[in-house]
């Protein structure tokens, strides 16, 4: 595993309709000019009721459809906690081994999924647009903390300038005086449909990559994440064992229903010899 080529992971997140897929499409185009092999993992939520999903991110990336150096895979988040990150992490390893670099991870920011992206990506890009509401909306959404780079897309729309100004003033508030000098997320105005600001976005991603490498923060993050992933895998295995035990052992399941002791039953199952 150690000698496998590893892909740099760029996460894109933002509210539905902010233009993430179009931005990714434009970024793929300029990365292909640099002769990079690009993979995209595009995630959309599954219905919590039926488990079904409509995964439509490929539509915006059709011009790369027949380019064998561009690999696009849609993923349903499939509704279980942490499930997306496990599948995405394994896919990223595999894509990296095949020589894809970077891997772009795109997800709709509607709740927790953007945090999952930030926990996987080396550089997290938060995509905003004009008219998403005032600055307070931005703090509420909790997206200010996870961004390594802000993109304010749809520069062709009215209100773009105001959105930039508000974001700038929100960010200046979060600068704690005397705090150690760290990475300050830059704000990149773009128009994905006109391919404007894409080179600047790539330059910002590159300089964040260099920041991670030169400060050692990248290495520390990778170590932390590997431990966290191991814990998630363990949780997944345990979940599986418990589900199976309850399905295969009706007496145990019945006792659980009678006594109403989820903690005790869980421990009992996990303590069993396999």
């Amino acid at each position: 595993m150690k000698d496998q080529p590893k892909a740099y992971v760029i996460g894109f997140t933002g509210a539905p309709g902010t233009g993430k897929s179009s931005l990714v499409d434009a970024l793929i185009a300029s990365l292909r000019k640099l002769d990079r092999f690009v993979a995209v993992i595009a995630t959309d939520p599954n219905s919590p009721f039926t488990g079904g999903a409509i995964l439509g991110d490929r539509i915006r990336m059709q011009r790369h459809a027949l380019d064998p150096r561009v690999f696009i895979r849609s993923m349903g988040a499939r509704g279980h906690l942490g499930g997306l990150s496990l599948a995405a992490r394994e896919s990223i390893r595999l894509l990296g081994a095949f020589g894809f670099d970077p891997v772009i991870l795109e997800t709709v920011g509607v709740g927790q999924s953007e945090l999952e992206v930030a926990a996987i990506a080396d550089t997290t890009v938060v995509v905003l647009t004009p008219n998403l509401g005032d600055g307070v909306q931005m703090i509420k959404a909790g997206i200010l903390e996870i961004a390594d780079i802000f993109v304010v897309n749809k520069a062709d729309l009215e209100g773009h300038h105001r959105a930039l100004t508000e974001l700038r003033s929100m960010l200046s508030l979060s600068n704690v005086p005397g705090a150690p000098k760290a990475w300050k997320p830059p704000i990149i105005p773009t128009s994905a449909t006109r391919s404007e600001g894409i080179d600047e976005l790539w330059a910002a991603i590159e300089s964040h990559r260099k920041y991670l490498a030169s400060t050692g923060r990248g290495e520390r993050l990778a170590a932390e994440r590997l431990k966290e992933e191991t814990a998630e895998v363990a949780a997944e295995i345990a979940r599986d064992r418990v589900r199976r035990a309850l399905a295969e052992d009706p007496a145990l399941a019945e006792r659980l229903l009678e006594e109403g002791t989820p903690y005790g039953t869980a421990e009992e199952i996990l303590d069993r010899k396999r």
């Binding site: 599954n46 219905s47 039926t50 488990g51 079904g52 999903a53 409509i54 995964l55 439509g56 490929r58 539509i59 059709q62 459809a65 027949l66 849609s74 349903g76």
Partner: peptide
């Protein structure tokens, strides 16, 4: 199909068989 629990990947208009 989504409501029936399938994962649908919609690729949009004007596709060639290769795509």
């Amino acid at each position: 199909l989504r409501d029936a629990g399938y994962e649908v990947i919609y690729t949009g208009l004007r596709q060639t068989p290769e795509m």
